[in-house]
Amino acid sequence: MKKLLHNIRHHISIILLTFKMTIQSQMEYPSFLVGWLLANPFQFGFGILGIFIIVSNFGAIGDWGFQEIAFLYGISAVSHGLTIVLFIQTWYIESSVRYGELDRYMLRPLGVFFQMIPSYINLIGFTDMLPGLIILIYGCIKIGFDASFFNILKLIITIAGAVLIRGGVYLFSGSISFYTKSSSSLIELDSRLFDSASMYPVSIYPSWIQILFTYLFPIAFISFYSAREFLGKTDGLPMFGNAYLITFLVGLLVFFLAFLFFKRGLSKYESSGS
């Protein structure tokens, strides 16, 4: 017990120091940070603008109005930003494997997964999160979101689940590089699928795609089911139980399976080498 506590403290102290050092090292290139601060709001701004134009021309997407979609889009964008903050390293498993950075992790008396993924908090990711947060708050105000403690908690649990789903899928894709030494095109594909399954209501797709995004590749949970529940809508596949809890559980499951896949891949790397 004492050892466990010591271990947790040790790991947290490393995360904090690494975070501090990450901020310092990113400050070494301030123009880089400013670039992202400009680029990311533009990207999300144009994303939501596109939806606005579609909705104002056609009235609604499915039967979702612009303000409802802004709420859904906000959940998606915030979860995207947080994923970039916490799990961006999953994108670089490929280069770690290829260029032998993994060797360096293995020479330290810490877990490889810990050193690779959670020990690195990405400051740049906050520039992804900020515009998402603005859109989400706009959506909340416009749909008359009842900001009670319980509702906010539900929203946080939803976003946590969404981050776990996104992070888990990226982790899974990144871990493929242990077997094939290449996974970047897959990460690209993930990002596109995330966008198409979480920035618009999934109910606009034919039902087989909805089934695919719900049961096989559960990225519809990132924003759709919870947003639907908050808005009291009933379109799309039926869901039993509280959507925010299911989202969170799906997130845990996806991430856990991805973690096992990572572990398996790592042991394969260890036994085959670079």
């Binding site: 102290s13 490393i14 120091l17 690494t18 050092m21 310092q24 090292s25 990113q26 070494e28 290139y29 330290r108 008396p109 810490l110």
Partner: peptide, 16 residues
């Protein structure tokens, strides 16, 4: 660590 001062790499190793 490429972007950090040498002393900071030491600091992290000391923690690890």
């Amino acid at each position: 660590y490429w972007d950090l001062r040498l002393g900071e790499s030491f600091e992290l190793l000391r923690r690890i």
